[in-house]
Design a protein around this nucleic acid. Structure first.
Lengths: 229, 229
DNA sequence: ACAAAAGTGTTTCTCTTACACCCATGA
DNA sequence: TCATGGGTGTAAGAGAAACACTTTTGT
């Protein structure tokens, strides 16, 4: 009886018949606050509970593809910022059968794809983070973990631009960061840091309808991707 | 036909019968270099290839428990530093059946548990990182990712002490960091930083057999855990 | 005694933080 | 014209980086 077995050798022996799903923590930024997209379950278990949107991994796709599919079905976007957070596998996390879930977080612009508008149809809604109720399954935990990861990433890398429209003012970025991080940031210091980024490009347009006539900026996407690599 | 479906609703529909395994990237530090524990496959696929040790998730355990079990069977340790890295799910990553793997990295002290000694039995061996051959499956990728994550963590948090014996000299920590990060670190600056940690405790013993007669230090484990929390 | 490694402080520089007034636009 | 938000610079402090000689021990 060999003591050490490569991963494949145990597969049949103790394998648990688990379904694998990808659950998405989709963050958006609207009307000055950070929101997350939740869906409401119509069936047991956790009927009536709000949960993270998710779906089972298909035969020909990996989990990233599953997450993208879920997102595109739900908010109709592709090519967004998507990132794997972690895998949750407690045996009893699903009360009926064994389900292992890998969570992702995504950043989108809610005003571009508004499942809120189809609320009556879909039971999908944006929630401000403080308003999120207790979720079904262990999804409150997944949400907390994803939010923690998002703030961590935000503190270390300039990746919040996926939450903003293509053209934005520096004040909008400022408010976004303050909202997500939950703290006030010195305006001048923040602007200086932003302006030091090579991927931030000043347009010569101004935002209309706002006092002070703030300049609009846009992102050089290629340069940003280089920065994040 | 509802457009949005909570995760549970799709489970039966497109579920792929995937086995779920935990694969462990076990790092150790011996004779001045960073090593990783690999096992050799005896059977197809990838017979003769070195791979990361792993095992299938059991019915009553979560993946963390699986990883711990694999580790304890392999190197006979419990209570080590273990951390989930990511989940790999490409449909063809296993040439025979569908296997989804969650990878973990762990830090141990090779001299305390030496699978190398039982080499003839086990086909388990410590490899210096530069000597690692091309691995079976996608394990080269898992190893690369885990190593990247380890260096990232090491740069931000003082967690390398699980790789060292209970009592160690500051020079040993210094060499460890240099080895893992792959760069030289100023000795005085490094010592100053180490000495500023409240969990580092000076013993009044000196290491024998080493010129200079360096002082031995130990870790206040509770204080360290507080620091890492 | 000599070779090798341990131990020790100070200066410079960079980055972060704190802070207040003028300007442009909309109402 | 006035109220609101946008735009700008400088000084102090904290943390990181650079740098060389003396002490201890083994051989």
């Amino acid at each position: 009886m060999p003591v050490y077995q490569p991963s494949d050798m145990r597969v049949t022996q103790q394998s648990a018949a688990a379904t694998h799903t990808a659950d998405c923590v989709i963050f958006g930024f609207a009307e000055g606050d950070l929101r997350v997209l939740l869906v409401r379950r119509a069936i047991a278990p956790f009927a009536g509970y709000w949960v993270l949107p998710g779906g089972a991994m298909g035969a020909g796709e990996n989990l990233d593809a599953t997450a993208r599919r879920v997102m595109s079905e739900l908010v109709g976007v592709r090519d967004l910022y998507l990132r794997q957070i972690g895998t949750y596998s407690d045996p009893d996390r699903h009360p009926v059968r064994r389900v292992v879930t890998t969570s992702y977080y995504a950043l989108v612009r809610p005003e571009h794809h508004a499942p809120t508008a189809r609320d009556y149809l879909t039971e999908a809604r944006w929630f401000s983070i403080p308003d999120v109720p207790e979720l079904g399954f262990d999804h409150s935990r997944l949400l907390t973990d994803a939010h923690a990861r998002l703030t961590l990433h935000l503190r270390t890398r300039p990746l919040a631009f996926d939450l903003l429209p293509a053209r934005f003012t520096l004040s909008e970025v400022h408010r976004l960061y303050q909202e997500i991080l939950g703290e006030t940031l010195d305006r001048r210091n923040f602007r200086r840091k932003l302006l030091s980024y090579p991927f931030l490009i000043e347009t010569n347009q101004k935002r209309q309808g706002v006092k002070g006539g703030p300049l609009l900026y846009r992102i050089d996407r290629a340069a940003l991707d280089r920065e994040l690599a």
